[in-house]
Every structure is written in structure tokens, then in C-alpha cells.
Design a protein around this nucleic acid. Structure first.
Ligand code: SF4
Ligand code: SF4
Lengths: 167, 167
DNA sequence: ATAATAATGGATATGTTATGTCCATTATTA
DNA sequence: TAATAATGGACATAACATATCCATTATTAT
């Protein structure tokens, strides 16, 4: 019971896209290089973000990924569900119809106290995620990160984007 | 990202123990038979519950598992952590020290906005689980389950317990 | 004491999912 | 037209959940 690593990568990618000046798509090659991640696998996560409508893609030269909406309009829940799916974590397998005593099956057809309690807790989790936007995450990060840090990262990307250009 | 099936079994086992009249230990053989689960694997989950101090064990004939505390004093969180462990679901792998730009590593040493937002949501989940007791779960279930259902389950166990006796 | 019951914990096997890689295709731009 | 870049399917590998087995220890009844 832990989140996939791909989720971490996806959120980080979004956070990066959010801090780039608008109108500059980042190709996944640079994203992978920046984080030192395996590019083909990162591609999977970015595809999921794309399918979920969180990022937009530009194909061809000077293409890459851009946020589809403003950071304020992208919630943590949307990113999490894009990668991990919308399914509940606690699954009721009906555990052989809740006991062998025949009658059981008839009456336990609706979710019982166990499932509902677990799902209620998940709802609290989702609510918190839905209340957090990508912009909120940025602000939290800013409070701890010196501004020149952000500038350096942006500069790195712009330099590497240009490199492909001039050669 | 979903809970192990073992968790479902463990909670169900606790719920059963809770509705049994006190002082009657249930051997795992009957628990497994009741739910039609593989006994050796269910044993693993019960061992975890035992190690966590949620159930107590009686070895030998007429032995089995009993709740270690009153249902009001056993929370859902305790059961979940007994099975799935206390670790956080979102793990920060430091993702190559948060970027290649050298400086990054120095400043990002503390959890950033991403990790803290994810962990905040998990805290909400845990809080909800901690606020739910085994007794609460029982009451929720009672509201939907006819009383004769419970009686039948108890009777089934007592009959099977006696069976071993008389032979 | 002895035999039977029952949990324990280590070792091991199997299956499923997450992780990682590769490639042919499509779309876009210079 | 050539180069860039995302897409999606197929595939390989690693990690983990699930499942089984067995020797051991503790307890109770006889
Ligand atoms: S008791 Fe509840 S959680 Fe368990 S199988 Fe039945 S409906 Fe599902
Ligand atoms: S940015 Fe935050 S979540 Fe990501 S690796 Fe750094 S501290 Fe961990």
C-alpha cells in the first residue's frame, strides 16, 4: 500500500511546467534529463496526464508539454487520479457473501459498516487533495526555496532548449 | 495503489470477534472456514493483529483468538496500520535531489510543498480512521442487518466449536 | 506424563502489478 | 522534405502480494 513512483514524477513534472514562463513547451527528453529519470517510463506518466487533460502536447520541433490550465485550476486530486486511477483503495470483495450462513448473502448485499467506514476516510483524503491546487503547492515550495533556485532551473531549461536550436 | 486483500480479512475477523460473546476464543480454522479463505494466509494477518496487540491468542485446545480490548477501544486506524504498516503512502525519493542544478540539493533538503500536501491529505485520512472504532462499525452494520443474521453466525461458530468437543 | 490442539515464524512457491525498454506510427514545424 | 516530438502497443524485468508448507512452542484435557 504505497503510491507508485510514477505519481511522484508526474506531480514534479507538473510543478516544473507551472513555474516555466507560459508558451514554452518542455519536451520529455529534457524533463527526464532534469530529474535523471528513465525517459520511456516517464513518457507513460506524461501520457496519462495528457489523457486526463491536465497537460497539453505540442508535437514536432519546439514541441513538448504545457499545462492545459492555470495552476490554480489544477488540483492535486486531478493529478493523483490521472496516474493512480479513480478507483477506491479499499475494495469489498464480498468475501464470499459475508459468511457461510446462507442468509447472509441476501442481507449483506449493500456496503456494510466496514466498507463505508473505510470509504468515508478515503473521502476525507480526496477532499483534502481536491482543496489543494498546483498553485498552492508552488506557494508552499516558494516559502522554503530561495528565488535564485527557481531562476537557475528555468535558465537550465532555456539553455538546453536553445542548444538544439543552434546546432 | 490499493489495499491488500489481507486487510479486508483482518477487519472482518475483528468484526466477528467483536460480536462473539466474550470468553469464547475463535480458532483460525473456523474463521477461515466461515469466510472460505485460505487458512495459512489468514494466519499471517491474524499474527499481525496479534503482534499489534489488537487480538490476544490462547494456544492449545479450546484456544484461538479474542479481542484484546473492548470494541470501543479498537480503532480502524490501529487495524489498518497493523496490516499495512505505519509508513506513509506517498514517498519522497528525493528524485535525484530535486533537479540537476547543483544548488537544488542544498536547499530542498526539507520536505517541499508536494510532499507536505500529500502528507496533509494522508493525515486527514488517518484522522478519520482514528475516529472510527470497531464498535462504530458494528453499529453501522447493525442498522442494516437483521438481528437473526448475527444470531445465526454466532450459532454456527458455537456448533462447530462443540463438534470438536464431542468427538 | 502424554496426546491432542492451536498459534508462531521461517522458508518457499506462485501470481500480479509496477517498473522499465523498445519500436513503428502520427503529427508538426523548419 | 527532413527533423523533431508525442503516441501507443508490445515486451522484459523487478517488486510485491498472495498462498502454501513445516518444524516448533505453548496450552489444555485426559
Ligand atoms: S461485510 Fe462489508 S466489506 Fe465485507 S464483504 Fe460484506 S459488504 Fe463488503
Ligand atoms: S521536491 Fe519535494 S517531494 Fe520532490 S523529491 Fe524534493 S522534497 Fe521530495
Amino acid at each position: 500500500m504505497k503510491h507508485s513512483e510514477g505519481l511522484e514524477w508526474a506531480i514534479h513534472s507538473c510543478a516544473l511546467l507551472a513555474m516555466m514562463p507560459p508558451g514554452t513547451p518542455l519536451p520529455r527528453r529534457l524533463l527526464a534529463e532534469f530529474f535523471e529519470l528513465p525517459e520511456p517510463y516517464l513518457a507513460k506518466q506524461l501520457q496519462k496526464l495528457s489523457q486526463a487533460g491536465i497537460v497539453e502536447t505540442r508535437r514536432g520541433p519546439r514541441g513538448g508539454y504545457v499545462l492545459a490550465r492555470k495552476p490554480e485550476d489544477i488540483t492535486l486530486l486531478q493529478m493523483v487520479e490521472a496516474i493512480d486511477g479513480p478507483d477506491r483503495h479499499f475494495v469489498c470483495t464480498e468475501i464470499r457473501r459475508c459468511g457461510p450462513t446462507g442468509v447472509a448473502g441476501k442481507h449483506y448485499t449493500r456496503p456494510c459498516g466496514i466498507a463505508r467506514s473505510m470509504w468515508k476516510a478515503e473521502a476525507a483524503w480526496r477532499k483534502e487533495l481536491a482543496a489543494t491546487s498546483l498553485a498552492d503547492i508552488q506557494h508552499l515550495g516558494m516559502a522554503e526555496t530561495p528565488p535564485e533556485q527557481t531562476a537557475k532551473a528555468i535558465a537550465w531549461f532555456q539553455a538546453n532548449l536553445l542548444q538544439g536550436e543552434t546546432e
